Simulated scan of single mutants.
Amino acid sequence: MASISVRDVANRAGVSVGTVSNVLNKPEKVNSETIRRVHEAIDSLGFVRNDAARQLRAGRSRAIGLIVLDASNPFFTDVARGAENAAQDLGIAVLTGNSDQDPEREQRYLDLFEEQRVRGILLSPVGELTARLERMRSRGVPVVLVDRRADLEGFSSVSVDDIQGGRLAVEHLLQLGRRRVAFVGGPVGLQQVADRLEGARQAIAEVPGAEIEVLPIPQLTVEHGRLVGESLRARSSDELPDAVFAANDLVAVGLLQAFMLTGSVRVPEQVALVGYDDIAFANAAVVPITSIRQPSELMGRTAVELVERELEDPEGAVREHVVFPPVLVVRASSGGAIGSDPGALSA
């Protein structure tokens, strides 16, 4: 069946093609009776406008591409929600892709979004993308890095100070008297993980007798956290760390599951536990998890705003790096009151 065209609508309504275009795009220029006739023709014919073609003619899409590291992590769900809310306010949409921490998959999404001629890209990067991102920018596609500060000249970013976040987490554990801290996270090639570990090491270095053990994992998931928790549970009490800092809350949930499965490792009595991101699951856990909060929805909204500002001033020499402060939220897993959210302490 042939598709219905604008000319078909014009013929049915007894008007010109230009009048149909005005009804669709500039209705203020058309009288109400003509608008009524055109819409009746659209409804009777089942006409659907070719928005992609219209965007190509206009030279700018009404969609922004968002590529997240892990769509199963509620942190990125909240980032996407913030981006979508900002886009809706602007009358545009967000197309979301999940790299799943796979550089090749990340490249495929970049290819797809470039083919779709999106107006900009929000990216939590996995691989080395310097040349690719610079080429996209030279073609007029703004790229804003999300959850990572841009090291590249000419790119804006929205992030949290993850080094300070790591410091906050481990300083809290040290203030509780814990001295044998394990860090569980990975891959360490991810800048966010590396920065959180760096902050943890800085805090450890300032306290005599404190030590840190790094337990790397291939992905920041509940499953990998649980596997590390099971290996820790098998240790003797002398070999068990007295605190664990997990690189995100999903890993912390997995650790908590492993510790509580047999009850052989008590949280926080034997092991104090701190996560990162402050997702809803952290407060809803059987033992509510102390965490480092990131303003996830605000980060997504801010990233969209940065894309739009760059589109308004593509030749602007200065790009923006918005860095939000991390916030420590103390709960029962490190010794706070059970079931409470007793306080949030910013950096």
Rank of each mutant, 00 (worst) to 15 (best):
E297L: 10
G225A: 11
V330G: 02
V271K: 04
T290E: 05
E315V: 15
E269N: 06
V265F: 01
S231A: 13
M260A: 13
G263M: 11
R226P: 08
A280M: 11
E305V: 09
P241A: 13
V286L: 13
R226D: 07
A284C: 05
E297R: 15
F324I: 08
A252W: 03
R309G: 10
G254C: 10
V327P: 09
D242L: 03
V323P: 04
S291V: 02
V304A: 03
A243S: 01
E230L: 12
A285S: 09
S236N: 14
A246C: 06
E308Q: 13
S231W: 08
E269L: 05
L232S: 04
E320W: 07
G225E: 03
P241L: 12
E297K: 12
M299Q: 05
P325T: 12
P326K: 08
L255F: 00
S237F: 12
V274K: 01
F324D: 01
V265K: 06
S333W: 12
S334A: 13
L261A: 15
S291Y: 01
P325M: 09
Q257P: 04
N283Q: 15
P268Y: 10
S291G: 08
L232K: 02
V222C: 08
F245W: 09
V244D: 02
A258Y: 01
P268M: 10
V318P: 03
R319T: 14
P241Q: 12
R226K: 15
D242F: 06
L328F: 11
S264H: 11
V253H: 07
V307N: 02
L311F: 04
Q257T: 13
A332L: 09
V222S: 02
P314C: 07
V244Q: 03
S236P: 08
H321Q: 15
L227T: 11
E297D: 10
H224S: 09
V271Q: 09
A234S: 15
E308H: 12
V318H: 12
A252G: 00
R293T: 05
E312L: 14
A332K: 03
A234N: 13
L255W: 05
E308Y: 06
V267S: 00
I292C: 06
G316T: 14
S296T: 13
E230A: 13
F245H: 00
V327W: 07
A246F: 07
S291E: 06
V222K: 10
A282T: 04
